[in-house]
Simulated assay, not measured.
Amino acid sequence: MNDFLTPRHIARRTSAAVDAAVGAGRELGLTVTDATVLYELFSVVVHLAPSPVVARIPTVLPPSADLGSQARRQQAELDVTRWLADQGTPVIAPSPLVPREPVQRDGFSMTFWPFVEEDRDKEPDYMANSESVADLHAAMRAYPGRLSFLSAAEPRFITESLAVLEERADLIGPADLDHARREWQVLEPLVRSRTAFEAAFPGIDLQPIHGDSPPANIFSGVEGDLYADFELVTLGPVEWDLAALGPDLESAYNRGARRNGMRPLNEDVLGFVNTVGMLRAIASLTLVPQLPQLMEYLKPAVDQWRTMSFADGMTG
């Protein structure tokens, strides 16, 4: 099956996203004469220069991600980051120059953020970042808004992707796919149901969490580090934010947790979230045709998943 997008097709998609962001920005009253793409992978991030505003436009999405579902997720991110900023948490908050709500144009749904100058000379310190995530969790505990349970796991995406992969032997072999489907049969009930999760892991508190590996999503600004990219913000166990990072970074988080008077990471829950995270990686193989370079990121995760015990030893 040869449905992989070519660099030319991807460039067209990026150009369309930039045009949509420029048009939306101008309609909102921004002066935009020199739009510059800052980053692109799953989203196109564009500086609407000379305005100090950045638009983020998701472009690589599962078929079920319609404009309505995108907007709901984006509104949650805008609400959480604005609240955190109001509490004094160092976070990239929504731009104050436009309404704090998603904007839809030309088939895209986008959000707007302040332009923050990056300290390009600073190397990420994932040990320090992981310890800092405990500070973020402490700040998020009091968030008063409503969040869905483990929506960051994207259970519908996993289920639908495993079905699609039955016809994509070019992306995953039948033995691996059978393994993934059997694991998901065990774990899906605990992802979809808060009640089932709490029965499986009694005493594990749930709270608002970042949802997307926050140690890797701390932005090094010239004026200091900022928590960023809350696109998958959700209600869940804190372990979700440390999934697949390994013992050293888990220990760093635990130092931060002790400093904040919070519980350390639970090994059983870590096993659960690590396996669910791997199944999300398997599901993400269905996005490779939209973003062929994604395969180089997913292959190491798939290779690691093959070495893990079945569903981390859970028997359902």
Score class of each variant (00 low, 15 high):
Leu5Pro: 03
Arg8Thr: 12
Ala11Val: 09
Arg13Trp: 05
Ala16Gly: 06
Val18Asp: 01
Asp19Trp: 08
Ala20Asp: 04
Ala21Cys: 10
Gly23Ser: 14
Arg26Pro: 01
Glu27Gln: 14
Gly29Val: 09
Thr31Tyr: 02
Leu41Trp: 14
Phe42Arg: 04
Phe42Thr: 12
Val45Trp: 07
Ser51Ala: 15
Val53Pro: 00
Ala55Ser: 11
Thr59Pro: 01
Pro63Gln: 12
Ser64Pro: 02
Ser64Glu: 15
Leu67Cys: 07
Gly68Ser: 13
Ser69Ala: 10
Ser69Leu: 12
Gln70Leu: 15
Gln70Ser: 09
Ala76Tyr: 01
Leu78Trp: 04
Thr81Trp: 05
Trp83Gln: 02
Leu84Asp: 00
Asp86Pro: 02
Pro90Thr: 09
Pro90Ser: 12
Ile92Trp: 02
Leu97Gln: 14
Leu97Cys: 04
Val98Gln: 01
Pro102Gly: 10
Val103Ile: 14
Met110Asp: 00
Thr111Tyr: 05
Pro114Val: 11
Val116Met: 08
Arg120Leu: 14
Asp121Ile: 03
Pro124Thr: 09
Asp125His: 00
Asp125Glu: 02
Asp125Gly: 00
Ala128His: 11
Asn129Arg: 14
Val133Pro: 00
Ala134Phe: 03
Ala139Met: 08
Ala139Lys: 05
Arg141Gln: 15
Tyr143Cys: 07
Pro144Asp: 08
Pro144His: 07
Phe149Ala: 06
Phe149Gly: 04
Leu150Gln: 12
Ser151Asn: 13
Ala152Leu: 03
Phe157Val: 06
Ile158Ser: 01
Thr159Arg: 12
Val164Thr: 13
Arg168Ala: 07
Ala169Cys: 03
Ile172Lys: 06
Ile172Cys: 06
Gly173Glu: 14
Pro174Thr: 11
Ala175His: 10
Asp178Val: 11
His179Val: 07
Trp184Gln: 07
Val186His: 04
Val191Phe: 04
Val191Asp: 01
Phe197His: 00
Gly203Pro: 05
Ile204Met: 09
Asp205Thr: 15
Pro208Trp: 07
Pro214Asn: 05
Ser220Thr: 04
Val222Met: 09
Gly224Phe: 08
Leu226Asn: 03
Leu226His: 15
Phe230Pro: 00
Phe230Glu: 02
Val233Ile: 13
Leu235Asn: 08
Val238Glu: 02
Gly246Gln: 02
Leu249Tyr: 15
Ser251His: 10
Ser251Asp: 14
Arg255Pro: 01
Arg263Ile: 04
Asp268Val: 06
Phe272Ser: 04
Val273Met: 06
Val276Arg: 00
Gly277Val: 03
Ile282Asp: 00
Thr286Ala: 13
Thr286Trp: 02
Val288Lys: 00
Leu291Pro: 04
Pro292Ile: 10
Tyr297Ile: 12
Leu298Lys: 07
Ala301Ser: 10
Trp305Phe: 15
Thr307Val: 04
Met308Glu: 14
